[in-house]
């Protein structure tokens, strides 16, 4: 581990490198299941570019906070992680990625790379909601405990936010009953049915998002491949990996043009 830090310390002041033994409670739950999937997870849905790789019981991780450099950073980071782990793409069972919501361009950079890698090496893909990953992050950081409700909110620009209301469970977060991820003005996010929620994400910077029900708010908690990989491992166990041909980004906002042209004369 110290070698790993020394080697990459000179790469970039923005680059964070971790090589951690796995900590998740999920593996104890799996019990007798000796097969653990080798999964690569990527996320470029926001300003950071994060990559995590799970090979047997080891977790390898890279993060760069250099803005607007995702196309230049993502593939070299993947290559570094694979080399460090001493594996190739062909050793992977699946590639997981933050499928959205988030920056439209960021989502497409990530999926473009995932499509190329997964089609090229013939492995499955696991799309993971960025909002669910944030709820998982709240659990990992100890901000939220099992049974608590996390309201993950991301700034969607144009005075709107993306929100997902998740309940922390003993495996991965689950959408609160009767809710779905959506994009809306912050004032329209209905939290009346919930109490003692944990707020995470940049969407909480809007003062219109009611904090009355929130016991804790952590705006700096954002989507991260380290959380995506934990969710993806559980999804793999549940048989939720997909063929790469069938995945698309989840934009949530689909109204991207407004002015339609009016004809002068009927054709």
């Amino acid at each position: 581990m110290s070698e790993c830090f020394a080697h990459f310390a000179s790469c970039s002041k923005f680059l964070h490198v971790f090589h951690l033994p796995i900590y998740s409670t999920i593996y104890s739950r799996i019990g007798d299941c000796t097969f653990m999937a080798n999964i690569l997870a990527l996320d470029t849905s926001g300003e950071s570019c994060t990559v995590a790789l799970r090979i047997e019981s080891n977790l390898f991780y890279r993060r760069s906070d250099e803005a607007r450099q995702h196309t230049k950073l993502l593939l070299p980071l993947v290559d570094e992680l694979l080399s460090e782990a001493g594996v190739s793409l062909n050793d992977l069972d699946a590639i997981a990625f933050g499928c959205g919501p988030g920056s439209f361009t960021g989502l497409r950079i990530c999926l473009g790379v995932v499509q190329g890698l997964a089609f090229g090496c013939g492995c499955k893909v696991i799309p993971v909601s960025t909002l669910m990953a944030m709820a998982q992050g709240a659990s990992r950081e100890g901000v939220a405990e099992v049974g608590q409700t996390v309201v993950a909110a991301l700034d969607a620009r144009m005075s709107e936010i993306y929100t997902g209301i998740y309940r922390i469970t003993d495996t991965i977060p689950k959408l609160a009953a009767g809710t779905q991820e959506c994009v809306s003005p912050p004032a329209e996010v209905a939290l009346d049915d919930f109490s003692g929620v944990i707020g995470v994400g940049s969407g909480w910077s809007y003062s219109e998002l009611s904090r009355e029900q929130a016991v804790t708010v952590k705006e700096s908690l954002l989507p991260d491949a380290a959380d995506i990989i934990v969710v993806a491992e559980e999804m793999w166990q549940q048989g939720l990996a997909q063929d790469v041909m069938s995945v698309e980004p989840v934009y949530l906002r689909n109204e991207v043009t407004w002015k339609k042209r009016e004809r002068i004369r009927a054709q």
């Binding site: 290559d79 790379v113 995932v114 190329g116 089609f119 090229g120």
Partner: peptide, 8 residues
């Protein structure tokens, strides 16, 4: 991004 990754 797709083309470069596929080549890789």
């Amino acid at each position: 991004c797709f083309g470069r990754s596929l080549a890789y």
